[in-house]
Simulated assay, not measured.
Amino acid sequence: MTTDDELVARAREACDRAYAPYSGYDVGAALRTRDGTVFRGCNVEMVTFTNTIHAESGALGAAVAAGHREFDAVAVSSAERDGVTPCGLCRQTLAELCDDDLRVLCDVGDGIEEWTLGELLPGAMSGDEVPTDEDSE
């Protein structure tokens, strides 16, 4: 299985492929499934920003498209190696398919700062808050 250091290295590789001409802030992510498969994503900015793809969302989408739904850890890196954590949108996106104990590994250049998703997003919104057609019957 990929070590934490290797997972951060994969996030750095993804960061090198980012397309961020407007913010200039390249981000890469590497998401590891419970069976050890790793999926990468990078930010892809659009001039409107509203349909920008975030690195973590890209990695999660690739994993789901490949049939994976159980995750162990995600590593996030920016070109600055500044310990970037997933933004609020990405935290909520991860919370949709990942447990609170998902390990979030943040690249601080000469080491790794580690959180759990639950620490970064306590009280995440869940499907329980969203009314369904069954609720109206």
Results as ranks from 00 to 15, higher is better:
Leu117Val: 12
Val64His: 08
Gly83His: 13
Val27Trp: 01
Leu60His: 10
Ala63Thr: 13
Gly61Glu: 13
Asp26His: 10
Pro86Leu: 12
Thr132Ile: 02
Leu89His: 04
Arg81Asp: 10
Phe49Thr: 08
Gly28Ser: 13
Tyr25Arg: 14
Arg69Gly: 13
Gly123Asn: 15
Leu31Gln: 03
Met46Trp: 02
Arg103Cys: 03
Arg81Thr: 09
Phe71Thr: 12
Ala14Met: 10
Gly127Tyr: 08
Pro122Tyr: 05
Ser57Trp: 01
Asp110Met: 06
Ser57Lys: 03
Ala30Trp: 06
Asp107Met: 07
Ala73Lys: 12
Met46Tyr: 11
Asn51His: 12
Glu114Met: 11
Thr132Lys: 08
Arg10Leu: 14
Leu97His: 07
Asp26Ala: 15
Thr37Ile: 04
Leu97Pro: 00
Glu45Cys: 09
Thr132Trp: 00
Ser136Cys: 01
Asp100Phe: 00
Pro86Arg: 14
Val74Cys: 05
Ala20Gln: 12
Trp115Thr: 05
Gly88Phe: 04
Glu45Ile: 15
Gly118Arg: 11
Ala62His: 06
Ala66Glu: 15
Val84Glu: 08
Ala124Val: 10
Arg103Ser: 13
Arg10Ile: 02
Leu105Val: 11
Val47Glu: 11
Ala30Tyr: 09
Thr116Trp: 09
Asp100Tyr: 01
Gly61Pro: 03
Asp16Met: 11
Leu117Lys: 06
Asp101Glu: 15
Glu13Trp: 01
Glu56Arg: 04
Glu96Ile: 15
Trp115Met: 03
Met125Leu: 14
Thr37His: 02
Cys15Asn: 12
Asp135Gln: 03
Arg103Ile: 08
Leu120Thr: 14
Glu114Leu: 08
Thr116Phe: 09
Val76Ser: 02
Glu56Asn: 05
Glu96Gln: 14
Ser78Pro: 05
Leu60Arg: 11
Gly111Lys: 07
Thr52Ser: 12
Asp135Cys: 00
Glu114Ala: 15
Ala63Cys: 07
Gly123Trp: 07
Leu105Lys: 12
Val130Asp: 00
Glu70Pro: 00
Pro86Tyr: 09
Leu89Cys: 01
Leu121Ile: 15
